[in-house]
Design a protein around this nucleic acid. Structure first.
Lengths: 234, 234
DNA sequence: CGCATACTTGACGTCATTCAAACCGTGTGG
DNA sequence: CCACACGGTTTGAATGACGTCAAGTATGCG
């Protein structure tokens, strides 16, 4: 399917937003929209022809699978996010859709020539890459030292922020985009530990569970304290 | 001190290598070389005027300090590496010299205008940023699931590779660039665990310790097996 | 020599994992 | 409609790895 930027919901926030209308049309000619079902893979680690893409809607996970078959989620991608390793000869990680997702994909060679042609695009991707780096380092910091409860609280806190439309206040009620297993894979824990600690956080009064995936924020300040991002307040 | 690119040992491998001689001279006029003693800080988390820099010689660590005062090392920087958060209003992490280090520093505004003027520089930094991202994700993958022994073996294995001049074969004898405490901070372990597991790896016959920091590779294949990057061989 | 810094070693406690079983919502076929 | 299987989840008990606390050993420096 061809790309139609005019109606694209992320046309002002994705990397291609730095291009003017003509430039965008040229790039769009090389792109294809693609829809991934939940669980479907965009590319796998080792693929030589891994595409690059901007996520239009839905959510993706970037993950690695170790020797023993354990998956480790390295990053989540939200709409307007960019995915793809530009200069590597092959992909290092798997990229899989968490929910049904719409993408705007490009062959790597096309994107590489585009960043040569449009310097602003290279700068936009540099900016995004640095943000990805920061997000990954935050996850690394979290996984390294914090207790299971702290990690989980921090993740819930982040999801609450991401689920909200306003950038500063967290959503008071939202759905977890990940299964227990995926949360465990992201935080370096087991399913059982995630389930247990989730129960303890609920008992503490910070959240209430609504069904399997639903979370209601009962006491955001307490959640923030549990997440170790702030000293507990009086 | 002014920058003199002609004698710079990383002039062909750093990001500025993509510039021609004239362009490099213009950029060099905005740069200053700076020497950091071991333990000296280039900038701290929260600094608003954090500089950007290319590392010429020595080694740096990028680290975060959590609430309780525990340091977590997020990345190491080797010669020709680039350090600095280009688009953020302030630095998110500390950057400290592990050994005496020589840097080529730039004010962030100067570098931002340079990447507008020289698109090739933006692409070079994009490439480096993606490599940093990959390295951070590798560390994340390691810290998340692996046992203390596996993490330590993997780190030693990496250091052996980095200490070698040939890109594929590891050095058979080298010095650890980090103290026990720094290794612990990097792997999310304690000093005591690092010390103990180092002893066990030595007992297993993979390495031999030479003084406090020296490591001799006795059985590289065994070390590789311990590091979880390869199935144990027959 | 005396002190500081880095490292090693041991005993003990804690927290997350492991193994095991039960639970729940959903879809499927009899 | 019910029985059943299945994926995702919850819960319990026992094990074990790493952390904590505490002591003791180098090495270097004023």
């Amino acid at each position: 399917m061809n790309v139609t930027c005019k109606t694209c919901p992320v046309k002002d926030s994705a990397a291609c937003a730095v291009l003017n209308e003509n430039e965008r049309d040229v790039l769009a000619a090389a792109g294809r929209t693609r829809i991934l079902a939940r669980g479907e893979m965009l590319f796998a680690a080792g693929d030589e022809d891994a595409a690059c893409a901007t996520l239009i809607s839905g959510a993706l996970k970037v993950s690695a699978v170790d020797m023993d078959g354990n998956e480790q989620i390295l990053a989540l991608v939200h709409p307007a996010g960019f995915i793809g390793e530009l200069f590597a000869p092959f992909a290092h990680h798997d990229v899989v859709a968490l929910t049904e997702s719409r993408l705007c994909t490009f062959a790597r060679v096309d994107l590489e020539s585009a960043i040569e042609q449009y310097p602003a695009l290279a700068r936009a991707l540099l900016r995004r890459s640095q943000e990805d780096l920061l997000a990954t380092r935050n996850l690394l910091e979290l996984n390294a030292n914090a207790s299971a409860e702290t990690r989980l609280a921090a993740l819930i806190h982040d999801f609450a922020g991401a689920a909200s439309d306003s950038p500063c206040h967290p959503a008071s009620e939202f759905e977890l985009p990940l299964t227990r297993g995926e949360i465990a894979n992201m935080l370096g824990l087991t399913i059982e530990t995630v389930s247990r600690k989730l129960g303890e956080i609920e008992t503490s009064g910070a959240i209430r569970r609504k069904g399997k995936r639903g979370i209601e924020l009962v006491d955001p300040a307490l959640l923030r304290a549990l997440s170790g991002r702030e000293a507990a307040q009086a």
